[in-house]
Structures are given as C-alpha cells and as structure tokens.
Amino acid sequence: MENLSCKLKLENLSKLIMEAGKIMLESGGEVSRVEETMKIMARSYGASANIYILTNGLFLTLDCEGMISSYVMEIPIAAMNLGRVVKVNNLSREIQEGKYTIEEAFVKLKEIKDLPLYDKRIRIFFAGLAGCSFSYLFGGRSYDLVAAFIASSLLFMYSLFASSKRFPKYLQIVIGSGFGTLISQILFSLGLGVSLNHIIIGAIITMVPGVTLTISIREFIFEDYLSGTIHLVDALLTSMCMAVGVITMFEINGLIF
C-alpha cells in the first residue's frame, strides 16, 4: 500500500522537479543553482534526488524509500528570462516551508512558465539604450551614440523577427551583424557619427558573447569541463560569425562604392 503511494508520488514529483529544472536552466539559471533547487524540492517531498546537469540536458534519478525512477530531458536553448529563475527559486522556498502539495506546485509552475519577457517595444528601446551606452564605454562620442542607438534597436528588431521565424542560430548572427554593419554604414555616410568602428561595436553589443566566454572559463575552473567546452565553442563560433557578417558587409560596400 505504502509502495503504491510512493510510486504515484514519484511520477508526479519527477515531472514537477524536471519541469522546474527545465524552466530554470533554459531561462538562464546557472547549473549549481538549478541542481540545488531541484534537490530542495525533492527533499521537501520526502525523496532524495541525484542530478546531473549539462547546459542542454537534465538527468534525474529520484529515490523514494527504495523505489527509483529516472528521467532524462533535453533542454533547448531559449531566450534568457531571469524573472522566471527568480520565481522558481521563490517557489522552491515556499515548497520547502511546506506551503504547497505537488499538484498545487504544478499549477504555480505553469503560471511561471507562461511569464513573458517585457513588451517588445520596451525591449527594442532598451536594446538601443544598451548599444548607445556601450558605444560610449568603448570610446564612441557625441553623434556616434545616436547612431549606435538607432542601429542597435533596429538590429534587435531584426533579432526578434529572426527568432520568431526560427532562423538557424549562427546564420541569424551572421546576417544580423551584417545588417547592423549596413545600418551603421548608412547612418555614418549620412553624416551621423564620427567613428564608424565605435558605432558598429555599439550596434552589435547585444550579440557579443562576452558573458558566455566568462561562464565557460568559470566552468573550467570548477572542473565542469563539458559545460565549459560547450560555452567556449559557442562563444568562439558566435564571435567568428559576427566577424564574418561585419567583414562581408564591408567587402560588399567596398565593391559598390
């Protein structure tokens, strides 16, 4: 009798924990935090969890009074949404305090899953602002910032469009950086800005894989070689694709003018 309840619980619990882990991982939660949150949830419902996490996969084994269930899940890379990470983290705390049954927690998790990013227009505006301020930090001045603002927000609009059409990731980056360069060159030849390079770096800053490279090195330091390699290769490929996009656009314009 007791084993039967355990079996039922295991099924629901593993679904709940996997879902929570999936939401956190794909929204940009770091590996160690995802693991901790999943373990807390399992412990709060009286099971012990053994978890192995990659940047794009979850492996879970749950143990409840000797009954074992295992789950494997592939995690596609999605848009980052740290708001979800915060919410799942809070949920795991409330679960730890015993506020929810498994079913209630599932409902809560569904709500978190449907949590959208900010409105598109707001994001486009802030993408422009990011391009503008980082152009300044890299040495752009006066009208460069205006040009960087325009180019960066247009590039972000393109990115939104490209991801909604599900362009292949690296193709999207090549085309995007080419597009950003084109806009910068047009604005520059219209007389906006004094330094083309600073406009371009501001325009494409939202695509630069800086944090990815840092994450990767940190993972190597913490002996997580596999995730480190994944992020390192991602950073290298992304920056290569960006350079290809920018240079191709330079070459094309060189041919025309």
């Binding site: 980052m80 949404n81 740290l82 708001g83 994001r123 990011a130």
Partner: peptide, 9 residues
Amino acid sequence: SFAVLLGVP
C-alpha cells in the same frame, strides 16, 4: 538595459 533584455524583474 541589459537587465531589461534579460527579463530581470
């Protein structure tokens, strides 16, 4: 700006 793009509350 980056915080907004990353969906920070």
